[in-house]
Simulated assay, not measured.
Amino acid sequence: MQKLHFPKYTFRFKNSENKIAIFDEIRKKFILLTPEEWVRQHVVQFLLQEKNYPKSYINVEKIIKINSLIKRYDIVVYQPNGDLFLLIECKAPEVKITQETFNQIARYNLVLNAKYLMVSNGLNHYFCQMDFENEKYVFLEELPNFENRI
């Protein structure tokens, strides 16, 4: 798999029927290793190891309903009170992050109301804080650590 712009993390792999799977600590199972899953697992480790987000507050790949359409978010992080804190959209490294990527996460966030957004293709990472009052997002240099969240 391609080297990504994250610190080096250790992962568990298994090979079954000539397909490689990577262990997802959050879902507690092996997932087929695709380029997007490679990015997703790096983002999970980034949240756990660099930002100190508790594993119990992280949720991966769940279904949401948006305007009667069934969609699936990549990663969310909850606050201790159950409110959504962070919504993350992961793309494969070869997928360019465009305005359409931000439109996608913004549509998801109309339903989810996360305070922070992250978009990553493993090579480029974008962090935003929502300004709900003015209906826009403000780009940030980095995400807050869990203990420093606002």
Rank of each mutant, 00 (worst) to 15 (best):
S16M: 08
F23L: 09
Q99A: 02
I150D: 14
F139M: 13
Q49R: 14
F139W: 11
V39P: 06
E135N: 14
F6A: 06
E142T: 11
E147D: 14
L140S: 09
N81C: 06
Q99R: 08
Y57M: 14
E61F: 02
R149K: 15
P54Q: 05
Y57F: 15
V39G: 06
N121H: 09
Y9M: 05
L117K: 07
Y108G: 08
N109V: 03
Q49D: 05
E142M: 03
E147W: 08
A92V: 03
E36K: 12
E89A: 13
R12T: 02
Y126Q: 14
I58T: 07
I31H: 00
I66G: 01
P144Q: 04
K29E: 15
K55H: 10
K55I: 13
S56C: 04
F30T: 02
F11I: 08
K91N: 08
N81M: 04
L69G: 00
V95W: 02
E133Q: 12
D83A: 11
K3Y: 11
C90P: 09
K14G: 00
K62P: 00
N148I: 01
R72Q: 08
V60H: 10
E142D: 12
E89L: 12
D74K: 09
F102T: 06
R12I: 00
N134S: 11
C90L: 05
F146W: 15
K62V: 01
K28H: 04
E147K: 14
K62R: 13
E25I: 06
V138G: 02
F23T: 09
I150Q: 11
I150F: 13
N124F: 13
E135D: 11
R72F: 07
H5A: 10
F85C: 12
D24P: 02
K65R: 14
L110Y: 09
K28G: 00
D74Y: 08
R72L: 07
L4A: 03
L86N: 10
R12C: 00
L112C: 09
C90W: 06
R12F: 03
E141M: 03
L110K: 13
P144C: 07
L32D: 05
K14L: 10
V111W: 01
N15Q: 12
A21Q: 13
A106L: 14
R12S: 10
R40N: 06
Q99E: 10
E17N: 15
P80I: 13
R149C: 04
F30E: 01
K29N: 13
Q2Y: 11
F46E: 03
N52C: 08
A114R: 03
T101M: 08
L4F: 04
I66F: 12
K19M: 03
Y116L: 12
V119H: 01
N18P: 00
K51D: 06
L123Y: 00
P54E: 03
L4C: 04
N103K: 14
Y9F: 15
K71L: 12
Q79W: 09
E37Q: 08
K3G: 02
I105Y: 07
V39M: 07
Y126K: 14
G82R: 10
F11H: 10
F146P: 06
F102R: 13
A106N: 10
F127M: 05
F23A: 07
E94S: 11
Q45D: 03
Q41H: 04
Q2R: 11
Y57N: 05
E135C: 04
N124I: 12
G82N: 10
T101S: 15
